[in-house]
Design a protein around this nucleic acid. Structure first.
Lengths: 389, 389
DNA sequence: GAACTTCGTTCATTGAATAAACTATGACCG
DNA sequence: CGGTCATAGTTTATTCAATGAACGAAGTTC
């Protein structure tokens, strides 16, 4: 397709880059983009814009829509994302079940399959499900991405305690089956991208912190994961933040870990579980020990401050189950950050958007990989609103 | 010249990118690069490589050297950096003095001027020195970069306590005088780049920590400062790391700051001063309170761990005056990092290279800006060895 | 209805890389 | 020593993508 190296050494790469720019405009303003608009926005001539659009239509990435209202001359032909042909396969892998979703290019879920398994047969069942999707949708598949708890370099699962996978070349295996690019994404990274997809891309760093039974972090820049090797990035759950007598023991075997001090379990007690729904968490939080909550908030805030200062982060987003803890908790975190902030480093904290779904994040990563393009927040909201369920 | 927008919309941008790639190869392997070698390394045809080299020679960026030994056929003409024409102006600004250095493209210092001033007349004296350099070297100047303590967006000095500058548009002012691009660089960033220039570029994040009377951090990726807006990045000196009764008061007026706990002044007492030379620091450290040193090392290590974990940093480099504290201190830091490291996040710490000079770092930033090119560590070592002094 | 705007296409031209033929120079080898 | 081969580098025609200018189509304004 259009993916791959932005080596920009030859005319072909210029063409690729301009195709991407044109396609990005259609993705950003679906139904409003026009050939003339692309020409204006990119600085390319009208002739070139037309040529690019023609190629995108032929590749079944873009379709023409109705004529736009006149702005004083001939009416423009609107352009939208072609939602009828290509499909993105999103796989969300969890210890005992998985979710396979097929998304159209407009972000709408075309089909969802759920599978369950016991750990020993997980690989077999998963592979079979992948093969089934491949057999049914074949050439319509554009790209696939799998989200999983654990560390990954995008091609292999390096280490996943929850799945008991160690150095598994999953991408390669599924690529042989599906004949499309497959990439692997860490769960918190996907969550961060989903959140970021719900906002206009900003030029600064955004620090995303997932707080549930565990704690993980991800850094985004301009709507994408911060560049560089991300194999083990964001693994801050078991960094020591409490010392000496104050260090609480952690499920990992050590003591003083951030998770032991600031996770949902630390703040709400063993009654917390990652499988609880939002209402149950709210109910549990209502009965929580104020002091434990405050302590968790403080410890988290102190951690955040350091990282935000080094990166000059413009925003911190708290996601995961902690997202429903409400103003009380958020204020505690923000206060502790502000309290000692130097004035120059004074980063705002907020909760993640409830509308952001993991599936969206994974799909966005896949889309970026395959086409180098981002959905517009508006498009995603529309797509999730029209979700068949 | 060749700098500026990588707008990548037209053939011209392809040409620019390829010129940069060719030039980079000459910078990396001066005296060994050849047209045929460039062709092989870039994948471009020999004809294109020849054309690129011809243009670089005409621009006085590259010169031909002697014939290389035959590798079984016609002997190749070697290519080197043209050190005779273009000059890079590096300005290191400090509260009561400044250093203006003119560097050739091979990294050698062609001329150095020192000026001193009292604070009230600083602007006037500096501007006059800049004007004098401009008048003398005129069109040979390629680019200028100024290094200073304080925050900057590259164009303006946002805030510098040491210089008592607040939102000063220095780059614009000097550009009007010199008619070349001028950029401003934070002092710790320059130090980090200098260090990074002494190593082969690596794909991972490198965390650089300057420890002197103050503490600052910088993150490099692939030999350059991490992308994104860096206006206030790395300002970690006054993040609170000690709390309650343990929090020591800081010169900034608050208490518990990292500087108050882990700076050279915190560890060695008021006898420390940033103007001390290496020998004096070593002597001072020999009489230091072991416990204060250990405490500083511990606090620093705990700070480092968090940041390294979020970034998945591959290396931490300690620079500034602390660089001469010796094995004792370094081991304390490394031990505290290893002690609670999760095994996955276990980042090595080392001291900065003594050969790296601030001037080199500033010049490297300027060179990257102007030509998109990095010096090779070997080239820099050769240049600094041949320094007239 | 005439003048003007805006959209989009067609076509000759430009700039950069390519492919292939060619020259130059040196190594290797019988 | 002369022939063959390998490597370096140049020349020339070709290809590909974007440009610029002309132009047709469709709509608005007066």
């Amino acid at each position: 397709m259009m993916n791959g190296d932005d080596a920009l050494d030859t005319q072909a790469s210029v063409r690729r880059a301009n195709l991407r720019r044109a396609l990005q405009l259609v993705f950003r303003t679906p139904g409003e983009a026009t050939r003339a608009g692309i020409s204006r926005a990119t600085g390319l001539t009208a002739a070139t814009a037309s040529s690019l659009v023609a190629e995108l239509i032929e590749q079944r990435l873009v379709v023409e829509g109705p004529q736009a209202a006149s702005t004083g001359g001939k009416r423009a032909t609107t352009l939208s994302v072609d939602a009828e042909h290509h499909l993105i396969l999103v796989v969300v892998i969890r210890p005992t079940d998985a979710r396979l979703a097929l998304l159209a290019l407009d972000g709408a879920e075309v089909e969802v399959r759920r599978i369950t398994y016991a750990a020993p047969e997980r690989d077999r069942v998963l592979d079979a499900a992948i093969a089934a999707v491949g057999a049914e949708y074949g050439s319509r598949l554009l790209v696939a991405a799998a989200q999983l708890p654990g560390t990954t370099d995008g091609r292999r699962v390096l280490e996943s305690v929850q799945l008991d996978w160690h150095d598994v070349p999953l991408a390669e295996r599924w690529e042989r089956e599906l004949h499309i690019p497959v990439l692997l994404v860490n769960d918190v990274d996907a969550e961060a991208i989903a959140e970021s997809a719900m906002e206009e891309a900003s030029a600064g760093y955004r620090l995303f912190i997932h707080i549930g039974g565990g704690i993980g972090a991800a850094v985004t820049l301009d709507g994408e994961l911060a560049p560089g090797p991300r194999d083990r990035a964001g693994e801050i759950g078991h960094v020591q933040v409490e010392f000496g007598a104050a260090a609480r023991s952690c499920r990992c075997g050590r003591a003083g870990c951030l998770e032991a001090a600031a996770s949902m379990t630390a703040m709400l007690g063993d009654g917390f579980d990652d499988s609880l729904d939002d209402d149950a968490i709210v109910a549990l939080a209502a009965t929580a020990d104020e002091e434990l909550l405050a302590e968790g908030a403080r410890t988290l805030a102190r951690t955040i401050k350091l990282i935000a200062a080094v990166l000059d982060a413009e925003e911190v987003v708290i996601g995961g189950p902690a997202r429903v803890l409400g103003d009380r908790y958020l204020r505690l975190v923000q206060q502790e950050i502000d309290y000692t902030a130097t004035g120059t480093v004074n980063v705002p904290v907020r909760y993640a958007d409830g509308a952001a779904s993991i599936t969206t994040g994974v799909a966005q990563v896949a889309l970026t990989h395959a086409l180098g393009v981002r959905w517009s927040p508006a498009q995603l909201r529309a797509a999730s609103a029209s979700r068949p369920e």
